[in-house]
């Protein structure tokens, strides 16, 4: 193999998985498109349709009290639910309190998940609350919130 070929191989090998045909998404799916601005209250209303979510210990929000790094803050939301077709968690929403867009992610679950949990990592621009809003299949909304201190840590 010539030098050039080796690099060609490196190039093509990494590009293979990139292109697939566009999928059609279900109606009613409003996908975010541009840089967004939305404050916390507007975001909350958009999710609950104006309903007041109920504080519940069925929702466990796990995120650090002090973040080691604002760019990577682990968040795990677990909901106590049987996840049966008649009683399941429809959605888990994660919101932040002070980023320019309060919405982080909406996760729409189904009974096929077996357990209601979602885990990810988010960016926080500074010390603020992280909130989980949970929608149950009967239309009720639950909420859990925690403050996360963001500091500039360590060297470099």
């Amino acid at each position: 193999m010539q030098r050039r070929d080796f690099f060609k191989k490196l190039g093509t090998a990494t590009a293979i998985a990139a292109v697939v045909p566009t999928m059609s998404f279900a109606a009613g799916d409003s996908k975010p498109t541009g840089p967004n601005k939305m404050d916390y209250q507007t975001a909350l209303n958009a999710i609950t349709g104006g309903k007041t979510p109920v504080k519940s210990d069925k929702v466990k929000l796990k995120t650090p009290e002090i973040a080691e790094n604002g760019a990577v803050v682990p968040v795990t939301v677990t909901v106590d639910s049987p996840m049966t077709p008649s009683n399941y968690v429809k959605a888990i929403h994660i919101l932040n309190g002070k980023n320019s867009n309060a919405r982080c992610i909406d996760v729409f679950l189904t009974p096929a998940n077996g357990k209601a949990m979602f885990s990810t990592r988010i960016k926080l621009g500074g010390t603020q609350n992280v909130t989980a809003v949970v929608e149950l299949s009967d239309g009720t909304f639950l909420i859990a919130s925690q403050s996360v201190k963001v500091t500039i840590g360590g060297c470099g």
Partner: peptide
């Protein structure tokens, strides 16, 4: 999973660089 959508997500820019999405799934 086998042609059936089990979870979908709307995502915004506040997720970390090189993000991770973790859920549960019942093997069927």
């Amino acid at each position: 999973y086998n042609g059936k959508e089990i979870t979908h997500m709307n995502v915004w820019e506040s997720l970390s660089v090189n993000p991770v999405f973790t859920i549960y799934m019942k093997v069927n």
